[in-house]
């Protein structure tokens, strides 16, 4: 198992943002994390990336306990945040070089990997421009390059399609499928039902910090007893109580 999350919780004072969730991801699997705004998706992903400390629970990535052996766990993890921070006064090339150094990649390999990724994500001609001149889509692509530079086994992606044009979104979806085919495990948080339906192998619906249901789409349909519903109706049905509340 590539990722194993057990009884994970996160408390902010009295507020329980994530409530005792457990799930796992295998190599080559794309796992979707579906939920309304404020459901606890980003908090969970930030805990898995090592940014936030869980209040309770255990996270094992590639056999490494994130709390006990964070360096090893992070070395095999890539993280694409929903709003990536990219130093505005660095060029794309400089930023990727910095990430390569941060992950202690062999210095000789870094330029080659950077060129490959920049070409792959159509950023080659912008490589020596300052990041502050990049559009949102370009920043998103650069953040993806940064997350992939050290060839992670496990990729965490937070709301990848926000602000992307249809062409960019299509490219990213195809890329994720390709990476998964090559053995990478991907955890993808989204509130886009189409994305979830199209590219995830399994998914979990999180609501008010708790996983309501998880499995393949057909498993979720049968577990919930709503076999005839499409994913949108199913999702709305499962989360309907909250959407009616203020």
């Amino acid at each position: 198992m590539l990722l194993s999350v057990s009884n994970l919780s996160k408390k902010y004072g009295d507020f329980l943002a994530v409530n005792d969730i457990s799930f796992s991801i295998k190599e080559g699997e794309i796992f979707g994390f579906l939920g309304l705004n404020g459901a606890g998706k980003t908090t969970t992903l930030r805990m898995l990336a090592g940014i936030l400390e869980p209040s309770e629970g255990e996270i094992i990535i590639g056999g490494h306990n994130l709390a006990l052996n964070p360096i090893e766990a992070k070395k095999i993890t890539g993280y694409i945040p929903d709003r990536p921070y990219l130093y505005p006064k660095l060029t794309g090339q400089e930023f990727l070089q910095f990430i390569g150094d941060l992950y202690e990649l062999p210095r000789k390999e870094i330029p080659e990997k950077i060129s490959f990724l920049l070409k792959e994500y159509s950023l080659t001609e912008w490589a020596h421009e300052l990041i502050e001149s990049y559009s949102h889509g370009m920043r998103q692509r650069l953040a993806t390059c940064a997350a992939l530079l050290h060839e992670p086994k496990f990729l965490i992606v937070d709301e990848p399609m926000v602000g992307l044009d249809p062409q960019g979104a299509r490219f990213l979806k195809n890329s994720f499928k390709e990476y998964a085919k090559n053995g990478m495990g991907i955890l993808l948080s989204t509130h886009s039902l189409n994305v979830a339906e199209e590219i995830t192998d399994r998914l979990a619906i999180i609501h008010k910090g708790k996983i309501l249901i998880q499995g393949t789409l057909s498993e979720i349909r049968s577990q919930s007893g709503k076999e005839g519903l499409n994913i949108e109706d199913l999702f709305l049905e499962l989360t309907s109580y909250d959407s009616r509340s203020p």
Partner: peptide, 13 residues
Amino acid sequence: SADTSLMLSSPVS
């Protein structure tokens, strides 16, 4: 600073 989260998600002790 937003780069704190970048540092925290990187393999830095």
